[in-house]
């Protein structure tokens, strides 16, 4: 640095009094409780094949109340509701996760491209989003599910994923429009960065945060939607999911006489979705970066 003149040294003096790093924002205990719950559910769902849980055949008498041997009681067929809830988590979480990943990849890409290029590209993609949103969602879901002979986990997930494309895409488009106006995107253009690089390096890291927050909320919505499809008998054929178990538990007089069949899976589902919503909200707040020093 010997080539520096006196002026530059003086100008440079101010770097020495940088304040120490700003106080770290905290996610808060609530966030970690939620993550803990989600992690537990996720882990249990993942390890279910190796856990002593089964949905085959009766474990006890039909409609037994919760007890030490069957914590959540048993259903009309004598199957353990606890086991069903754990096995159902596999389907529900997988559907939710896959649906939202599909929505984020497809919708997010379309949205960012629309927001960045604007003009005709935006008009075409905007029209796709509008069409998806205008089409009655339930009818769309029925159409897609019915297009396949066998309703598999994949079918349900794709169906819900397609429904997620438009909301996620519109959010991505709106966020991209905001950031594309910012001067750092102009600066990247002036430097000579190509469109793809600008999208990946400059826009994506900024747009991904609101998308991730929406993604967590969206996963909750997808899990609930799977439950809705289950009520119509359109969820995974011959499988278990929270929706299917809840649907079973509301047959005839079960809700009055043996509410545990429906209530336990409802409770688990409620806590899971609550956690997703809360965590999504906190993530959005946390990454809501301060952009000025003061």
């Amino acid at each position: 640095m010997s080539d520096m003149d006196a002026e530059t040294t003086i100008v440079g003096a101010d770097v020495d009094e940088m304040p120490d790093d700003a106080v770290e924002k905290e996610l808060g205990i609530g966030f970690w409780v939620c993550i803990g719950w989600l992690a537990t559910i996720g882990l249990v769902a993942l390890l279910a094949p190796w856990l002593p849980v089964t949905s085959d055949g009766a474990q006890g008498g039909p409609r037994e109340a919760p007890s030490m041997s069957h914590w959540f009681g048993t259903d009309a067929n004598g199957r353990s509701v606890f086991d069903l809830t754990i096995l159902g988590a596999r389907t529900s979480l997988a559907v939710g996760l896959f649906a939202i990943i599909f929505g984020m990849v497809v919708g997010g890409s379309l949205g960012i491209v629309a927001g960045y290029f604007k003009g005709k590209v935006d008009a075409v993609i905007g029209f796709i989003f509008f069409s998806l949103l205008s089409f009655p969602q339930l009818v769309l879901a029925l159409l897609i599910v019915n297009a396949f002979d066998q309703v598999s986990l994949f079918t349900v997930a794709i169906t819900l994923g397609i429904l997620a494309v438009a909301p996620v895409g519109r959010l991505a488009r709106a966020a991209t429009l905001v950031f594309a106006e910012r001067e750092f995107v102009l600066a990247a253009k002036v430097i000579g960065a190509k469109h793809f690089r600008i999208i990946i390096r400059e826009l994506l890291p900024n747009v991904l945060i609101p998308m991730a927050a929406l993604g967590l909320l969206g996963m909750g919505v997808a899990i609930v939607a799977e439950g809705g499809l289950a009520f119509l008998g359109l969820s995974v054929d011959g499988g278990e999911s929270w929706g299917i178990t809840i649907n079973d538990g509301r047959q005839s007089r079960d809700l009055q006489e043996n509410p545990w069949v429906a209530m336990f899976p409802i409770g688990v589902m409620f806590l899971t979705i609550l956690s997703l919503n809360f965590a999504g909200d906190r993530v959005r707040e946390y990454f809501d970066v301060r952009e000025t020093a003061f």
């Binding site: 910012r182 001067e183 750092f184 102009l186 002036v190 430097i191 000579g192 390096r201 400059e202 900024n206």
Partner: peptide
Amino acid sequence: RIRPDLQMIFQDPISSLNPRR
């Protein structure tokens, strides 16, 4: 190809830097 020759300084110093990089 010609862009690097002509660079620009913007008005809003904060908006001209990507907050995430």
